Computed example of a mutant assay.
Amino acid sequence: MPASFVHVHLVALRYFSETVRSGSMRQAAEHLSVAASAINRQIIKLEDQLQCRLFERRSEGVRLTAAGEVLYQYVQRLDQDLERAIAQIDDLRGLRRGHVRIACEAAIGRDFLPPILAAFHADHPGVTYSVEIKSALDTLDLVASDEIDIGMAMMPPIRSDVQIAARAEMPVGVIAQKGAALGDRASLRLHDLAGERFIRAKEGMVGGTTWQQQIDRSAPQSTVLETNSPDIMTVMVKAGLGIGVRNPVGILGDLEQQAMVFVPIVDALAPNPSLGIFVRPQRLLSSAGAVMLELLKDALPEFAERVWNLTGQPTPDGGISTGAA
Rank of each mutant, 00 (worst) to 15 (best):
V172Y: 02
A85S: 13
R93D: 12
P156V: 11
G319T: 10
A28K: 09
F55L: 11
R14E: 11
S17P: 13
A107P: 09
D81A: 11
Q163A: 04
D81K: 15
L92P: 04
G94Q: 09
A290Y: 09
D91Y: 11
V127W: 08
A103M: 02
D317P: 15
R159Y: 00
V6Y: 10
A67P: 14
E69V: 07
R63L: 05
R84H: 14
V34Y: 06
A3C: 13
V279H: 03
A119G: 14
S286A: 03
G312T: 03
H124G: 07
E226P: 01
D184A: 06
L225N: 13
A239K: 14
D267P: 01
P171F: 05
S222K: 05
P220N: 05
D149M: 00
R280T: 06
R185L: 11
F262G: 01
E18T: 15
M236V: 03
A12C: 13
V75R: 09
A270E: 11
A166E: 00
E56S: 15
G318C: 07
V100C: 04
S59E: 10
M205C: 04
G179H: 07
A66H: 11
I199S: 08
R189W: 06
R101Q: 15
Q80E: 14
D216G: 09
R101K: 14
A288Y: 02
G323V: 12
Q27E: 15
G319W: 14
S59C: 12
I251A: 07
L46A: 08
T322Q: 01
T311Y: 01
A290F: 12
A239Q: 15
L140A: 03
L300D: 00
G240Q: 05
Q257M: 11
S130W: 04
V11E: 14
L293C: 01
R53F: 09
S274G: 10
L64E: 06
L92W: 10
I133L: 13
V62G: 11
L275T: 08
A67D: 15
S17W: 15
I43W: 08
R21W: 13
V291N: 03
I43R: 14
V143F: 08
G312V: 01
V291A: 15
G109W: 00
G126Q: 05
L140E: 03
A288L: 01
V279N: 01
L182H: 05
L32C: 03
Q76W: 08
L71F: 09
L193G: 02
N309P: 11
V143E: 05
S321M: 08
I102T: 04
A176V: 12
D149C: 00
F120K: 08
S24F: 04
F262V: 06
Q213V: 06
V127L: 11
L310M: 06
H99M: 11
A186Y: 08
E56D: 12
Y15S: 12
R21N: 14
E294M: 15
N228R: 03
K45R: 14
S145H: 13
Q213L: 10
I102K: 02
W308G: 02
R41N: 12
E169R: 15
M155D: 10
L190S: 02
Q42S: 10
P264Q: 02
G151M: 01
L10F: 14
V249E: 09
T311N: 01
M155Y: 11
A144H: 02
L285H: 01
D267G: 03
N40K: 06
L64D: 12
